[in-house]
Computed example of a mutant assay.
Amino acid sequence: MTEPDLATGLRHEFAGQLAAEDKLPAEWRAAVEAVPRHECTPAFYVPNDAPGITTYVPITPALVGDEAWLRRVYSDETLITQFDGRDIDWSAPQPISGAAPTSSSTLPSLVVQMLDVLDGDDESTVTEYGTGTGYSTALMCHRFGPDKITSVETDPGVAGRARAALDRCGYAPRLITGNGLAGADCTAAADRTIATMGVRGIPWAWVRETVPGGLIVATLRGWLRSLGLVRLVVEDGQHATGRFIAAEPGFMMARQQEAPANLGMLPADDDGKTRETPHGPGVLRMPDSGFVAQLAMPNARTFDMAGDDGGMRTYVLDAANDSFAVLSRDGDGWSVREGGPVSLWGEVEQSLALWHAAGSPAATEFGVSVEPDRQRIWLENAADGPSWRLPVVPGS
Rank of each mutant, 00 (worst) to 15 (best):
Y56E: 05
E235I: 07
E347S: 10
S91F: 13
R231S: 00
V392A: 15
A325R: 14
D87E: 13
E209F: 15
R174N: 09
G280P: 01
D185F: 15
A293T: 11
Y171S: 09
D185M: 14
S97Q: 13
R389L: 15
T210K: 13
G395D: 06
I194H: 02
D87K: 15
S104G: 05
T55N: 09
G250Y: 01
N262E: 09
P36S: 08
G130C: 12
G157T: 05
P287S: 11
D87H: 13
A293K: 07
G282N: 11
A43F: 14
D116G: 03
D236E: 03
T302M: 12
T8I: 05
V73W: 09
L181R: 14
V348W: 14
R11N: 05
R275P: 00
R337W: 04
A62H: 11
A205D: 03
T2I: 02
W69L: 09
D304H: 12
G282S: 10
Y56I: 03
T193I: 05
R86I: 05
D87W: 11
T106A: 02
E13M: 07
A353S: 06
A50I: 03
E21R: 15
G242H: 06
G307L: 02
K23S: 00
A34Q: 10
R221Q: 01
P298F: 10
A182I: 09
A300D: 03
